[in-house]
């Protein structure tokens, strides 16, 4: 199995996230950046499939130079090699442009399986799996809470999470699979893994080398524009009451004054 897994570097969940004041893109400079937590589940699933069926796992990231830290993390978890698409021209790309760029890179790797996570904690688009399927012309197996691959038959089956249960979805390989975080428990990189990661092959590509035209990516040609950004007005500080035996009644009173009951 030739498996590609996409990972994204994002501002740390606990960091106070901001937009850059000059161009209103996500400020990735003034905060700590980490691998998108959800992507750990994608990497884990890729590794499990490789361990069960053999093959190779290639990490693909698009992002600034320092996103290489996130690539290292995926390699230290056990991925075999990585491709890093990085170029100033990519700055400010929206989800549609990012999918175009990632698809271009992924197509050259001729994978049997492309694995993404469902959502990145910065953009929370939740559409990259669907968009990669669209761009690559492959089956879309997103929102997977369980994945079963049958390399001999050349098929893959998932449980697609739904509101009231799940749908069982089948496709032929190659396919794009998007995993939800319920699917597994990601491993921690071992010391050996961390050491090994430093020697694993990493290919760095600029826009031109990836066969992309700088005019189709980046802020200038993005399909949407942020006109204005402001911090949410702080919530009015509320009333905090200690229970004196009548706490339930107190809440009910509050709800009644708010006309909520």
């Amino acid at each position: 199995m030739n498996i590609v897994v996409t990972v994204k570097q994002v501002p740390d969940t606990w960091a106070e996230k901001k937009l850059d004041a000059s161009d209103r893109t996500t400020d990735r400079k003034s905060v700590d950046n980490v691998m998108n937590e959800m992507d750990e589940y994608g990497v884990e699933e890729a590794l499990r499939i490789k361990e069960a069926h053999g093959g190779e796992v290639t990490v693909v990231t698009m992002g600034p130079q320092k996103a290489v830290e996130t690539i290292r993390k995926a390699l230290s978890m056990g991925a075999d090699k990585a491709v890093h698409l990085t170029d100033d021209a990519l700055h400010g790309s929206d989800a549609l442009q990012t999918s175009k760029a990632l698809a271009k890179v992924i197509a050259t790797l001729s994978p049997d399986l492309v694995i993404t996570a469902t959502e990145a904690s910065d953009a929370r688009g939740g559409v990259m799996g669907a968009l990669l399927a669209e761009r690559l012309g492959l089956p879309q197996l997103t929102l997977a809470r369980k994945v079963t691959v049958d390399p001999a038959a050349g098929t893959v089956q998932i449980e697609r999470q739904a509101d009231n249960g799940y749908a069982l979805v089948e496709a032929s390989l190659p396919a794009v699979v998007g995993v939800v975080e319920k699917i597994n428990e990601p491993r921690y990189p071992s010391f050996k893994g961390i050491m090994a990661a430093k020697k694993k092959p990493l290919t760095t590509l600029g826009v031109g080398e990836a066969g992309l035209d700088a005019s189709e990516v980046g802020l200038a040609s993005a399909g949407s524009k942020v006109d204005d950004a402001e911090p949410r007005p702080p919530r009015q500080s509320g009333t905090i009451v200690k229970d004196e035996g009548d706490g339930g009644a107190k809440i009910a009173e509050f709800l009644a004054t708010q006309k909520l009951i």
Binding site: R235, Q236, G238, T239, I240, V241, K242, D243, G245, D246, G247, G248, A249, K250, I251, A252, F254, L255, Q258, I261
Partner: peptide
Amino acid sequence: LADFGLVGDLFQVVPQLTDEV
């Protein structure tokens, strides 16, 4: 975040709240 916060044991508060509602 709370507009109304109750510091207390949920096992006491929640049944009482349900009754009141």
